[in-house]
Simulated assay, not measured.
Amino acid sequence: MKTALVIGTGLMGTSVALALRAHGATVHLRDTDSGAARTAASLGAGTVVPPEEPVELAVLAVPPALVAEVLSDVQAEGVARHCTDVAGVKAGPRQDALALDCDTARYLGGHPMAGGERSGPLAARADLFEGCTWVLTPTADTGTDTLNTVLELVSACRAVPVVMAADAHDRAVGLVSHVPHVVASLVAALLTRAEEREVRLAGPGVRDLTRIAGADPRLWVDILSANSLVVADLLESLSAGLEDAVGGLRAMAATDEAKRGQGVRDIEELLRKGVAGRARISGKHGVHPTPYETVTIQIGDQPGELARLFTDVGRAGVNIEDVHLEHSTVQPTGLVRLSVAQGTAVGLEESLGARGWRQR
């Protein structure tokens, strides 16, 4: 791909533009917020100068509710031969596009399964999509040239294309993205009513669970409003599980031994299902779940310590599959949990121990 137009220069749009620029494409940037577009351009994402002739692909990095409107305008303008989007919901925008009589043969919905808590062009990265799943939702009228052009985009971003029907996509992201965000926000909201001394006890569990709750509420209102019924149905199923959990926990506190025993069994079954569900999630995007071994290292809070640890792991010839940091609330130290391939943990522990790293 040699030319592209990115409309919307937030986190997603600017990251797409940076990836395309790294791939050698000429990228034109457009945003209703001219300041955001200029910021993206200053980061090397492209130019705010309009294209003199139609580009190969227009990437619509706008909220789901605006995709069809922007698509209609782009096609009327004739500024791009093909169009795609990166919105987190797919069925609604396509229905809106049909209602506006857009040329759906030259439009293919897409959704890269990547993002971050921070928004805006300054949070963008050229490698944001590397290794991630990029869902494509073609239909019977999707043109072959359009499909191939969008596949070029996915390849340039080093993502993994996955084809799904729009409705199936929306239910899937409701389950793995939208519902977790609502649940994280509900848990985080409890902290607003907690005493300061309670919040100070926050450890890695609540930090991990509420991390995504720090995202821009305005962005998430747009996402949830476009998939509200799917999310509502899933939350209704979750609420039934919460009621069972509440019943089991109250039974565990009962004076009747039989009730206590049943409560214990109910909660244990819930926790076992949680373990089974968690095991189905891959540690890497687009890869089947793989069992790893864990090496836990104590690390000081000095500049460069984490880089030194990673360097020593590399010297041991071991690849880090995943990493998790836990900070101490009372000491200037922390724990680094390294996930490594099976059969490599013992050798890594010996190598790091020889280099002075304390293990836990």
Rank of each mutant, 00 (worst) to 15 (best):
K2D: 15
I7M: 13
G8I: 13
T26L: 00
A41P: 00
A41Q: 00
L43Q: 02
G44M: 00
G44A: 00
V48D: 07
V70S: 12
V70I: 14
D73R: 06
Q75E: 10
E77Q: 08
C83A: 12
A87P: 04
G92Q: 11
G92L: 13
R94Q: 12
D96G: 11
D103K: 05
G109T: 08
A114F: 03
G115R: 00
E117K: 02
E117I: 02
A126K: 01
D127R: 01
L128W: 03
E130G: 02
W134N: 03
V135D: 05
T144Q: 09
V154Y: 07
V154R: 02
A156M: 05
A159T: 06
P161K: 03
A166M: 02
A168P: 02
R171F: 06
R171H: 08
A172R: 03
G174Y: 01
H181S: 09
V182S: 04
V183H: 08
A188P: 02
A189V: 07
L191C: 11
R207S: 05
D208F: 01
D208Q: 01
T210H: 01
R211I: 01
G214I: 02
A215D: 03
D222S: 10
L224Q: 11
S225A: 15
A232K: 09
L234R: 09
S237E: 15
E243N: 15
L249G: 13
T255C: 11
D256N: 09
A258M: 08
K259Y: 09
G261P: 01
L271F: 14
R272M: 11
A276P: 06
G277W: 07
H285M: 15
Y292I: 10
D301I: 06
Q302Y: 04
P303C: 06
P303D: 05
E305I: 07
L306C: 03
A307Y: 05
A307Q: 01
F310L: 14
V313Q: 06
G314R: 05
G314Q: 04
R315M: 13
V318C: 11
E321D: 12
E326W: 12
H327L: 13
V330D: 13
P332E: 08
A341K: 08
G343K: 05
V346G: 14
E350I: 14
E350G: 09
G353P: 07
R358G: 15
